[in-house]
Simulated scan of single mutants.
Amino acid sequence: MTQQDETRIAVRRATHPGDLGWVVMTHGEEYHRQFGWDTDFEALVAGIVADYAGGHDPAREAAWIAELDGRRVGCVFLVGGDRPAQARLRLLLVTPEGRGLRLGTRLVAECLAFARAAGYEQVTLWTNDVLVAARGIYQGFGFTLADEEPHHSFGHDLIGQNWTLDLGPEGDRSGPR
């Protein structure tokens, strides 16, 4: 990434009108275009965004938007997990326009820095094995595959994966390897 690219990029909290709607719409459109996924996926994303919008705890949960020249090109969410010390990374996406600028890495770094500051001890995420680029980002930060299971969702046979990152002294990394 060049110095000029840096000045064209901004990562900010998802607090502007239209941010949450953009997340839902763009996930639906991009995953259909790239993988042929149906509207069941968009409905899943809409549910996650609605839960976040309907009552997230700003001290423990946040969402970010990546912009390129003032246009939204990426997002990620951090929400509470199944236990008080556990958070979940959700909805990482970088559009084709934003790819190649390490925005996915930057979004995950923001997410994990927030998780550490909020006192979480572990971050988990669920993804599918076809999302190779995202998996590479997660592995770069030290996430490890906890388990995987075949499922039929979004009109396709997929392999769902659960990944985990411990934020304690052993698993605490400030950035990708």
Rank of each mutant, 00 (worst) to 15 (best):
L93T: 05
V94F: 11
L91T: 02
H152K: 11
H16R: 10
F35H: 09
L107T: 03
A117N: 08
R60M: 11
D19A: 02
L103D: 01
V130L: 14
R116D: 01
H156I: 10
D82R: 14
T15C: 12
G74A: 01
F114Q: 06
Q3D: 15
E6Y: 12
T164D: 06
S174P: 10
W126D: 05
M25C: 07
T39V: 14
V123Y: 02
L91C: 09
R72G: 00
I137F: 10
P58W: 03
A113R: 15
T2N: 13
A14H: 00
A53W: 08
L92W: 09
T164N: 07
R102I: 04
L44V: 07
E110W: 11
Q34A: 15
R83D: 15
Y120I: 06
H156D: 13
P17Y: 02
G136D: 14
S174K: 07
V123C: 10
E97A: 13
V79R: 15
L68H: 06
G155W: 05
A43K: 09
R177S: 12
V73G: 01
H32L: 12
G136C: 12
E29F: 14
R71T: 00
I159G: 03
L158R: 03
A146I: 06
C111P: 13
A66L: 07
Q3S: 13
A46M: 08
E29P: 00
T127L: 11
Q161V: 01
I137G: 00
E148H: 10
G171Q: 03
V49P: 02
H56S: 03
V23T: 00
S153D: 13
Y52N: 01
E121V: 07
Q3R: 13
L112I: 05
W22E: 00
L165P: 05
A50K: 10
V94M: 08
R135S: 05
L107K: 00
A118C: 12
T127Q: 06
R102W: 13
T39K: 09
A134L: 14
I65Q: 01
A134C: 13
G119A: 02
N128A: 15
L103C: 05
R60Q: 14
